[in-house]
């Protein structure tokens, strides 16, 4: 795990006199599961938007999959996957249509797209359900489908913004099985979550407070340095220092 897939140096985003992201510097390595934690309003979403080429930084440097976040945003978009709880799939298209639509948007064509589609349906055991509307399938299926679609084009890195809200504990764990499998294939996983047990599944975790990264290490080492029994305690210690209270 020595290839850096994400590099940031003093990355900053200001809106008027408000500094949403304040000089953050970190690297994420190939095949790593990187947890990006912070309270609501800490600046996570703004940072993720810059890293996925959707928002131009105010200052600092960053590259994702080898591409510059100022000048090569289109190349970034082609080399990443993205999934969030809020936006993932088109509810009024079928499972199959969603795979074809997003696969096409990510640049897959012809036989390759067909092969990938069949492999995805087989892997999720959805062959018999492929003609179902996404609106009619359980939330847990949607999440697994959305994740599988986000990595259909085998991106270097996939961004997951609170991917697992609202499902039962077994379904949530099955989702993490997919994350582990993707990382084992070399896809870097960049994930935000409010479930602190999920923070433990990450190789390394960063915790943002008021726009700054206040801690970054493996879960085990974070617990030792903060004399805490769990990641929840570590998070509570750091996040309670927050001054700003905005979303």
């Amino acid at each position: 795990m020595n290839n850096k897939v994400i590099q940031t140096e003093n990355l900053t985003k200001t809106f008027g006199d408000f500094t949403a992201v304040n000089t953050i510097s970190f690297d994420v390595y190939e095949g790593e599961i990187f947890g990006f934690l912070g309270a609501n309003g800490a600046g996570k979403t703004t940072a993720m938007r810059m890293l996925s080429g959707l928002s131009t930084p105010s200052s600092g440097k960053a590259s994702v999959a080898g591409f510059d976040v100022y000048r090569q945003t289109e190349s970034i978009k082609k080399n990443i996957g993205y999934m969030s709880q809020k936006f993932s799939l088109y509810e009024d298209l079928t499972i199959r249509e969603n795979i074809e639509l997003f696969g096409g948007i990510y640049g897959l064509r012809g036989r390759l797209l067909q092969e990938k589609k069949m492999a995805l349906l087989k892997n999720l055991e959805l062959e018999d359900d492929q003609m179902k509307l996404v609106s009619s399938i359980p939330l847990g299926w949607k999440q697994k489908l959305a994740f599988s679609i986000a990595i259909l084009h085998e991106p270097r890195v996939v961004f997951l913004d609170e991917p697992t809200g609202g499902v039962d504990p077994i379904t949530r764990r099955k989702f993490w099985d997919l994350i582990y499998a993707a990382a084992a294939k070399g896809i870097t996983v960049f994930v935000t979550t409010h479930y602190m047990d999920e923070a433990e599944y990450c190789n390394r975790v960063s915790i943002m407070v008021d726009g700054k990264i206040e801690a970054l290490d493996s879960p085990d080492r974070l617990k030792i340095t903060h004399a805490a029994g769990s990641m929840d305690e570590v998070f509570q210690q750091l996040a309670r220092r927050a001054v700003r209270k905005a979303d």
Partner: peptide, 10 residues
């Protein structure tokens, strides 16, 4: 508390 961070939940 759905979607709310652990500190606000507490």
């Amino acid at each position: 508390t759905t979607g709310v961070d652990p500190v606000s939940r507490k």
